[in-house]
Write a protein that binds this DNA or RNA. Structure first.
Lengths: 170, 170
DNA sequence: AGTGTTGGTTCAATGAACGAACCGGGGTAG
DNA sequence: CTACCCCGGTTCGTTCATTGAACCAACACT
């Protein structure tokens, strides 16, 4: 999307959002960050994405305030990408688009979501039918009927767990 | 996105949704359809989009069940693109992403939305704080503080009106 | 000294987007 | 009847983005 060839001339907030989030792979990166993926190589394994593109997307999301890059050990220097508060707020957007896609395009979901406190499935808005609004940290993901990837990161992700809980592949 | 170079290998609903909706311009086309734009030339004027790209997006959205092409007069033959039920169901996704963008990126919105029945502003989920869920046809849009485009289609859209109400430029 | 892991960058080839030109069916004004 | 305009596109050469393979540097392990 880059400079010059952007959605400028558009007057709406949506176009500014898509400027940051609308490029290929970007929303899938955010989705995986919500699922607990934090490290460059884990994103790469899960997504099968060219490294150059992943590098670009992580940089742009960091500059855009969706992710935050943190060095989590000094030697050897290793980094992780964490969602900011703004990034976590994308959960309802991503969840509602997933639900729409499942309903209107089809396919079986590999993962399901429920409110950890009460066990209810979530509404398309990501709210709980019993309890109302649900913080992403209160959402539990667990395996659904759909096909699953078999790489180590995906396998670690298929154990029941909370959103945002870091993925530890092994 | 096309054939071969898609998100295949991804296991989630989101990737299938982005296959259809994730290309450049696509969500802006849907947004404008929700705002009442129906005709090829009106999309083109509002969006400043190359005709070839617009043609491709309208075709793909039609094939994907988001839009429906209808001839609305026999002579000269003229066509319009209407949202299907599935297309209308994208309203919460588009609205919540717009709200996120406004909150986290900034800029003044050119249009605001309220529940026509009770006058309340909408929650980010597109629900009404008073009445709960709101059908898109019950949403009224009206001019906000932000900048507005001056083309005839945008000017017609800046009058207060319901979502989905056809735009008639003049 | 050699091998492996992490987190990248570089580069040539391919594919998508852009914008200008063109086109055809059907008005409509002179 | 001729000329011109509108709508809804298609075609095409140029520019831009994505891809996948190769390379690289820092450090750890054996």
């Amino acid at each position: 999307m880059a400079l010059g060839k952007d959605y400028l001339g558009q007057d709406c907030s949506l176009s500014r959002g898509l400027e940051l989030l609308g490029e290929r792979w970007t929303l899938l990166v955010v989705q995986n960050a919500l699922y607990g993926v934090r490290r460059f190589s884990d994103f790469q394994v899960r997504l099968d994405i060219p490294k150059a593109v992943l590098s670009d997307r992580l940089t742009r999301l960091t500059e855009g305030g969706v992710l935050r890059k943190r060095q989590y050990q000094p030697s050897p220097p290793r980094y992780e990408y964490l969602l900011t508060d703004a990034g976590v707020e994308l959960w309802p957007v991503i969840y509602s688009l997933s639900v729409w896609s499942h309903r209107n395009i089809g396919g079986e979901p590999p993962r399901l979501f429920r409110h950890a406190e009460c066990g209810s499935g979530l509404l398309p808005s990501s709210d709980c039918p019993q309890c109302g609004q649900v913080a992403p940290g209160e959402v539990e993901m667990y395996p659904g009927p759909g096909p699953k990837r078999t790489d180590p990161v995906s396998r670690a992700m298929n154990r029941p767990r909370r959103l945002l809980e870091p993925v530890v592949p092994e």
